[in-house]
Every structure is written in structure tokens, then in C-alpha cells.
Design a protein around this nucleic acid. Structure first.
Lengths: 159, 159
DNA sequence: CCGGTATTGACTATTACTGACCTATACAGT
DNA sequence: ACTGTATAGGTCAGTAATAGTCAATACCGG
């Protein structure tokens, strides 16, 4: 029962695999017809799957000869990676948000499964302390979670 | 007797046995209907049984085509190794003691550099919180440190 | 009886998808 | 140049389908 969104996402990913280039171009209307859906479905896929958080930038142009271009960003330098981490984690993060970040980084090959597991254990422990005996506000807990997550990810990237 | 939680836990484990894959997918609603319970019972089973500490990662998505995926990192967690961890860490540990343990495990090839670093970062963060804004006694801090260290080590003593 | 574990359900949050309406661009005719 | 028109893509709000959270309650082993 694959969802349409995932099907389209996979299709676009296969386009990236076929060519070596870091960017591909699409026509929204054609893609929509190909998958038998409304054009705005394509926007939904782009907004939810090809985000900066996942390492993509989307450009487009309307009107005659309109197009949509998806660019895959490559972060090589350690300091680029660090600032990317800081961007996607932010100053506050929920448990769900943290899991999304970890899943995304894992999918992109930036962390492996064991590292992901360790980070989850540490965050869970910290959150238990915060909600238990320390009795910290949820707002503050999310700020602490973001700080811990960034520290752990930074240390991974620099090592 | 056989509590529902244990029944569901066993059912999920049997799914892992049936397929060789390291991950399985579920629909919370279907599973709940299958066992005639409320959907949130499934969350309880996942929270209490399929934790990162036990070597599992749980991913999920709400909304249309939602799912719950359970990834098993650890195939068998030998009890001797766990009790070994408990022995060498104990119920309380100093920062230096923790470093000695990590260095020893690293030398014996049981953890790699990145894992060691991750654990140190998490412990330092927790200790900073305890000694800083929460003013926890040194004795209690060492107990928390031991707890965190054991949890993280247990989660990655595998294969 | 006590303390922890298990169960429930009301309320909340998120996601996929659609369709009506909005905006931008190129180009041809004047 | 100016303007109209055809041809793109963008936005937003609504709906249905899922999953998550939390606190109250029930249950069970010691």
C-alpha cells in the first residue's frame, strides 16, 4: 500500500541515480499526469521530501517554459556540516523532531545505526531526568535536548 | 499470567523470527484491532519493550498511510555481557572512572572511537547540568553517570 | 496494603491528497 | 514598445486517515 507521495519521491530519486549531476529538472504538469494526480500533489512531495533539512534546494519558474529544478546539496567541509547540523536541529527540538533528524542523517549516510542508537539512549535518559526528578518545563527540556543532540552530532562529524 | 503487553511483545518478536529482515512494519490500528485493545496499548508495548536501550529503533509516521517500523539492531544480547557491564560500571562512577572503563573497552575492541566519543559527550552534558543549574550532589551525580553509562553500553554491546 | 506495571480513552498532532483560486512568464500580434 | 493570451507553476484551506500523549484507573506480585 505504497502512498503516492512515496512513489513520486522514489521516482525523483531514481532520476538522481540515473544522472550524475547534482540537479534535475521536471515539468510539474507532466509529472502529475504521469502519476494521475493533481499538480499540487507534486508541490506536496517537494515540500515534504526535498527540503533543505534533507539536503535539497528546489527552484522553479512559472509561465511559458516553466520548470522545477531540484538541487542536491553536498556538504564536504566539516564547518559546512556543522552549520547544517545547527540549522536543522535549531535551539529547541521535540523528541519526534530529533527522531526525524536522526532518520534523515542516517538515510544520508552521515551517521550509522549504532551511533543513532546511542544518541537515542542518551536523549531518552536526559529527558527522563528532566521530566522526572528535575521537573523541568517542557520548553526547557526541548532546549536541552537540542543542545545535547547538536553536541553529539558535532562530535561525530569532527571525528 | 500472560499479560496483553507480553502477548503483543511476543507477537512482534515472532514477526522478527519469520522474516530475516532487520526491520518490520506495522499499522497501529490494525494491531490493536487484532488484539482487541485500544491503539495506545501498542505505544505502551513499544515504549516499555522496544527501546533503544534494548537495541531497537522505532520510527513512525502519522496521518494517511501512517505506519510504525521497528528496527532491530541487536540480535542477541547475552546476559553475561550485560552483567559484565553492570559489574565494571557499578552503581556509581566518577568521571575518571568512566573514562577508564571506556578506554578499556576501546582497547579490547568492544567499542570504536566514535562510540566512545559519543558516550563521553553525553556524560559531560549530563554532568554539566547536574553541577550547574540543578545543583545535584556529587554523590547523586555519580549515580546518574553510572546509570547513563550502563544504558549506553548495554545498547551497543552486540554482535 | 503498597508500589510498580498494565490498560483505557479522551484529547491532540500530523500527514496525504484534492480542488478552487492566484501569480508569473513567454510570445505573438499590433 | 504594448497588450492579450496561452501556459506554466504556487498557495491555501478542507477532509479523511493515522499515530501520539497523558492522566486516571485497574491490576498484580510481594
Amino acid at each position: 500500500m505504497a502512498s503516492l507521495t512515496r512513489v513520486i519521491e522514489n521516482y525523483i530519486n531514481s532520476l538522481f541515480s540515473e544522472v550524475e549531476e547534482p540537479s534535475i529538472s521536471l515539468r510539474r504538469k507532466e509529472l502529475a499526469e504521469h502519476f494521475g494526480c493533481v499538480p499540487s500533489q507534486i508541490n506536496y512531495v517537494l515540500r515534504s521530501r526535498f527540503t533543505p533539512e534533507r539536503g535539497y534546494i528546489v527552484e522553479s519558474q512559472r509561465g511559458g517554459h516553466g520548470f522545477i529544478r531540484i538541487v542536491r546539496i553536498c556538504y564536504d567541509m566539516p564547518d559546512e556540516k556543522i552549520s547544517h547540523i545547527d540549522d536543522i536541529v535549531g535551539d529547541s527540538i521535540t523528541e519526534q523532531g530529533a527522531r526525524r533528524v536522526l532518520a534523515s542523517l542516517h538515510e544520508r549516510g552521515m551517521i550509522d545505526m549504532k551511533e543513532r542508537l546511542l544518541i537515542e539512549v542518551a536523549m531518552r535518559h536526559t529527558d527522563e531526568l528532566g521530566s522526572g526528578e528535575f521537573d523541568i518545563s517542557p520548553y526547557r527540556r526541548n532546549a536541552l535536548a537540542a543542545e545535547l543532540l547538536k553536541r553529539m552530532l558535532r562530535s561525530l562529524i569532527l571525528s
